[in-house]
Design a protein around this nucleic acid. Structure first.
Lengths: 336, 336
DNA sequence: CATGAAATTGGTAGCGCTTTCAAAACATTG
DNA sequence: CAATGTTTTGAAAGCGCTACCAATTTCATG
């Protein structure tokens, strides 16, 4: 592997000059630039990434922490991050957080120890306080899918409340009034917000919602199945169901079918996130579009702006949700 | 940030000694070890990853190249790789290959330039010749989901042929004889192998397969939809369908439903890969289990063994497929 | 107690690059 | 043409660590 030194020798200039042309510095004459380029080409020189990182204190690597690597939701984030990062000729170091606070903290430390220039975090277990402190530190941090007032500039988020509000409101406006809800785990902030959106839609319509039509699950298909089973067993009738994510909605649809509840004729169902397989389901799932891929890309732009000083980038912190109507919903029709 | 130098000062030992305890070298007395550890703790010392990489010529980072980051198939790979790598206290640099040879080549160069210690590749466009040459180079390379005879030790793979053979054979043995097939793009090696498995099942059963019941698609739902539409339009009757992957099978099921073809009563369908959403579908998809996550983990073990000299690891190069029967298949019953 | 071998330690030269700083070369003005 | 300012260049000091080598200490043995 040729080094900068061999290049400088062949080109007949100093190390510094080679470095300057590598880094596109100003104040290099066309003549030396040409000589250096020629020498680089001849030697098939490739800069040593690690050495550059060490000397410049800039690794061009961005740490990305998500709860899990697979799963439609997170892989959408990763895909957005990777694609945007590679445009910028930087790269991601991706780690998964696992399922408790300690693991998330360890993962963050791991990324910092790897000299990541900045971190993109998608975390559930870590406290606001820690994140606030972290973002005051020397490593830049941007947080996806979570809003923390004190560091709102570092957050890229949707209004989860608005999302489920849109879903519930739509059902309410289309004649449904007994609308069940399967929530995510209520220690997660987004799950709380989504639940609150459901409630708010009722409040705004002047209708009381029924606690008994509500079930706290865990965002998984297993939880969704349990939830729907429990709701059905309750014997409290309902003609529509809002689920806090698409996984649970898909499980609920399956349980409905197993119990001869037709979707949407007997029960309309709306999910949340619009993960790609929601359109593969039967019936295709109506859901709330969550522009998670766009947010991930924006997080990268945030890093470009705030860590790599690309000043002209403008950051959009909040993104909009949107109701996507497919086959799993219909207007309420009174049973004869 | 404290450096090894401050640690050595505080501990009253030399740089070398600090380095030795950091790296768990033998021949360090308990006494100095204790002193160093104490100093490290007091300073909250964290080794500089980049500096270590440069000095030791070992970055502890493994480049991973997949065609795309999201999608159930690839994210399963990434998830396996990440999890196994983090056990080994190493990390992945993940990039996606895009959809042509040039991008894949660029991606590989990118990873090599980042001083990755080894590469885990999952590539379609790059030629066998290039991979053979690459694997002779100084960067270790392991290839997932592809078999190249000349470098079979570097390959972790299944028999794609066997997989679709199992699927087709099962249908044949259960009374079906008009079995359609929707293949992947036939310039991909795995798609060819899978198609050959389908044919071989017929040959072995002494039945001729019907070219007209065959459609070349592209592994996407769009292609699957086209394929099923075309097959149905053909008017050549068939009572079963094997698809070269689950995405296409899910699309085929949807088309079937739209055309009042009941699955499995009128048409049994089998997919390939057993991606996680195949169990979410209705009916749940029978499919061929592809242990892609296990293979990904094995690829990491391969790297541990071949690049990091963990001699005692034993590598399994070939993995088995398996028929997973769910709701989309049934025994053939003659129409009355 | 001398001896040699083994264990332990410190000194130092890099790893391949960036980044000051000052010197040299060049250009501009009155 | 001198005086001044402006580019352009090279020398050298690191970035924080590893790894080699040589020096020192320790220990068992005859």
């Amino acid at each position: 592997m040729p080094t900068i030194y061999q290049v400088s020798e062949l080109a007949g200039v100093s190390l510094s000059s080679v470095s300057r042309v590598m880094n596109n510095h100003e104040h290099v004459s066309e003549k030396t630039k040409a000589k250096v380029m020629a020498a680089m080409a001849e030697l098939d020189y490739r800069p040593n990434f690690t050495a550059r990182s060490l000397a410049s204190n800039c690794s061009n690597s961005i740490g990305v922490l998500v709860a899990e690597i697979s799963g439609p939701f997170y892989s959408d984030i990763l895909s957005g991050v990777e694609s945007e990062l590679s445009n910028a000729n930087k790269h991601a170091v991706i780690v998964s957080g696992g399922c408790d606070e300690k693991k998330e903290l360890d993962a963050i430390q791991f990324l910092i120890d790897r000299n990541c220039d900045a971190l993109i975090l998608c975390v559930d277990f870590i406290s606001d306080e820690y994140l606030i402190k972290l973002s005051k530190g020397s490593t830049k941090v941007v947080i996806i899918n979570r809003y923390i007032a004190e560091i709102s500039d570092n957050c890229i988020f949707i209004s989860n409340l608005l999302g489920s509000y849109q879903a519930t409101k739509y059902l309410l406006e289309n004649g449904h009034s007994n609308i069940a809800y399967i929530s995510g785990p209520l220690w997660k902030i987004d799950a709380i917000d989504r639940f609150n959106g459901y409630k708010k839609a009722f409040t705004d319509s002047g209708i009381d919602f029924d606690e008994a039509l509500t079930f706290e699950a865990d965002y998984t298909t297993i939880g969704g199945r349990e939830g729907m089973l429990s709701l059905l067993k309750n014997k409290k009738p309902f003609t529509a169901l809002v689920c806090a994510n698409d996984e649970m909605a898909s499980a609920a649809m399956r349980v409905a079918r197993e119990n001869n509840v037709r979707v949407p004729q007997d029960c309309s169902i709306i999910g949340f996130d619009n993960v790609y397989f929601s359109a593969y389901l039967f019936p295709q799932l109506s859901t709330i579009e969550n522009p998670i891929n766009k947010m991930a890309r924006m997080a990268v732009l945030w890093v470009l702006k705030n860590r790599y000083n690309q000043k002209d980038i403008v950051i959009q912190n909040q993104f909009d949700t949107e109701l996507v109507l497919r086959e799993s919903t219909q207007v309420y029709v009174e049973k004869t």
